[in-house]
Simulated scan of single mutants.
Amino acid sequence: MKELVEICKALSDENRITIFKRLAYGELCVCDILENLNLSQPTVSHHLKVLYQADLIHVEKRGKWKYYSINNEKVIETKQFFEMILNRSLDIEIKHCDSDCDGTR
């Protein structure tokens, strides 16, 4: 559950979602990600760090450059969780109170 919370926090920022969407098109370095973002390099690096800490992206260092890509396995795992919610197939038991809590039942 903690893992899912970290993923949701990482994706709770508009800039990180924009960066994540750019990475959907393939591996990029920071200079590619920066293009047309109106953010400084340190700010983009911070957002990439948050996405990395949530295990949503991979980082590969080649020489002095770092290349970022989406962690497809983590995205699939997260997608499966939300599909379970939509299909109501979570392994939990819900106990309803005996009275009409808000009168709408």
Rank of each mutant, 00 (worst) to 15 (best):
M1V: 05
E3I: 04
L4S: 06
L4A: 08
V5M: 06
E6Q: 09
E6D: 13
I7D: 01
I7G: 02
C8P: 00
C8G: 10
K9L: 14
K9M: 11
K9D: 10
A10V: 07
A10W: 02
L11Q: 02
S12A: 15
S12R: 09
S12N: 15
S12M: 09
S12Y: 03
D13K: 08
D13H: 12
D13W: 00
R16N: 06
I17M: 12
I19R: 03
F20P: 05
F20T: 07
K21D: 11
K21F: 07
R22K: 15
L23R: 10
L23V: 10
A24M: 14
Y25N: 15
G26D: 12
E27H: 08
E27I: 14
L28C: 14
L28V: 07
C29R: 10
V30T: 14
C31L: 12
C31G: 02
D32C: 09
D32T: 04
L34W: 01
N36G: 08
N36F: 11
N36T: 10
L37V: 11
L37P: 03
Q41D: 09
P42S: 07
P42N: 06
P42W: 07
T43H: 07
T43N: 01
T43C: 02
V44I: 15
S45P: 00
H47A: 03
L48A: 03
L48C: 03
K49H: 11
V50R: 03
Y52E: 14
Y52T: 06
Y52D: 06
A54E: 04
L56K: 07
L56I: 10
I57F: 06
H58Y: 15
E60G: 05
E60K: 15
K61M: 07
R62Y: 08
G63I: 05
G63Y: 07
G63L: 04
K64F: 13
K64N: 13
W65T: 12
W65M: 09
K66T: 09
Y68S: 04
N71V: 01
N71M: 06
N72K: 15
E73S: 14
E73W: 02
E73R: 13
K74G: 03
K74V: 14
I76A: 12
I76R: 12
E77W: 08
E77M: 08
T78V: 13
K79A: 13
Q80Y: 06
F81D: 00
F82W: 12
F82N: 02
F82A: 08
F82H: 03
E83V: 12
E83P: 00
M84R: 13
L86Q: 13
R88Y: 11
R88I: 08
L90A: 04
D91Y: 01
D91M: 01
I92R: 01
E93D: 12
E93I: 11
E93L: 07
I94Y: 03
I94E: 10
K95T: 08
H96C: 03
D98E: 15
D98N: 15
D98S: 15
S99N: 09
S99L: 11
D100L: 08
D100K: 03
D102H: 01
T104M: 09
T104Y: 06
R105Y: 00
R105V: 02
